[in-house]
């Protein structure tokens, strides 16, 4: 029987669904709270064939994945995928390099360059995001140069080093919703609309989930996006635009507890089965 190490910190609804899916498939799970670990290769006991990284902390999760990979344990997702997806600028670069439609973007380090980049991105409003961040936090829709000056000054004075790297993205008007697609090994297994009257549609910020029927266009852009970031288990956020679909972000430790009901897809089950395939070496991570 394949033993799966589940790297976690707090146990969310997603981890409980994963545990249930594993039990239903008679997969033995070793729960590994990364906050309690001593990641020393001389003493760490490896009792599993594959690991699934589900840490809510990106920093700690990335270190744990790097550690396990150094011990020749395959991890879902790999450190390569995590490094790209954890950073919005690196994600945008990977998407653009591979010809995946994505909003225009720029990274700048000063107000002067932010003003210049905004003009190149089509003017105001422009979106300013932390390159490292999630759940829709600290996203700014900047409507004019006064607001841009204020935002950049606050970040320069109050922010840490990471907050002083300014990721700018073209503002894309949305029809009151965006699409979140669940993609495993390049295959789109389900998708939801995230609807909100606010321009931020994250469910963590109040967006509501409903089923999004799969289309060839969605499946194709998700497959391309998956290939661009290195595959694995991904949640891909997609805008609907007048010019077709456009990929906004790619998430590598996705949350899905509110998406199994509307999609009627066992996302947790698909993740467990993918981990087993990785353990058996029968799939491209």
């Amino acid at each position: 029987m394949t033993r799966l190490g589940l790297l976690h910190s707090t146990i969310r609804g997603e981890e409980k669904l994963l545990l249930q899916a594993a039990r239903e498939r008679s997969v033995e799970i070793e729960l590994i709270d990364i906050r309690d670990q001593l990641l020393n290769p001389d003493i760490f006991q490896l009792n599993f064939a594959v690991a699934l990284e589900r840490s809510v902390s990106t920093t700690k999760g990335n270190y744990a994945v790097q550690f396990l990979e150094s011990q020749s344990v395959p991890v879902v997702n790999s450190s390569r995928v995590a490094a790209i997806c954890a950073d919005k600028f690196l994600t945008s670069l990977a998407l653009a390099k591979n010809g995946v439609p994505t909003p225009q973007f720029a990274m700048v380090f000063s107000l002067e360059q932010a003003v210049a980049a905004t003009e190149q991105l089509g003017g105001y409003p422009v979106i300013v995001k932390p390159a490292l961040g999630s759940w829709g936090r600290l996203l700014s829709k900047v409507n004019d140069i006064d607001a841009l000056e204020t935002l950049i000054e606050h970040k320069e004075v109050l922010g840490g080093p990471a907050q002083k790297a300014f990721y700018l993205q073209q503002y894309v008007p949305k029809p009151g919703r965006d699409i979140r697609a669940f993609v495993i090994g390049g295959q789109t297994i389900g998708a939801i609309y995230r609807s909100s009257s606010h321009w931020i549609t994250n469910t963590a910020r109040g967006g509501t989930a409903s089923n999004c029927p799969l289309s060839k266009e969605l499946e194709n852009i998700c497959r391309q996006s998956s290939q661009a970031v290195g595959g694995g288990v991904l949640a891909i956020d997609v805008f609907e635009t007048d010019d077709g679909l456009s990929v906004n972000e790619v998430n590598h430790t996705m949350e899905f507890k509110n998406s199994e009901a509307p999609t009627k897809v066992s996302i947790s089950g698909a993740i467990i089965e993918y981990c087993l395939e990785v353990a058996q070496g029968s799939t491209q991570r």
């Binding site: 707090t10 809510v56 902390s57 990106t58 961040g133 759940w135 590598h252 430790t253 996705m254």
Partner: peptide, 11 residues
């Protein structure tokens, strides 16, 4: 008490 949300928490 549960830990407070930190800057790098998320998906």
């Amino acid at each position: 008490p549960a830990p407070a949300i930190e800057e790098d928490w998320g998906e």
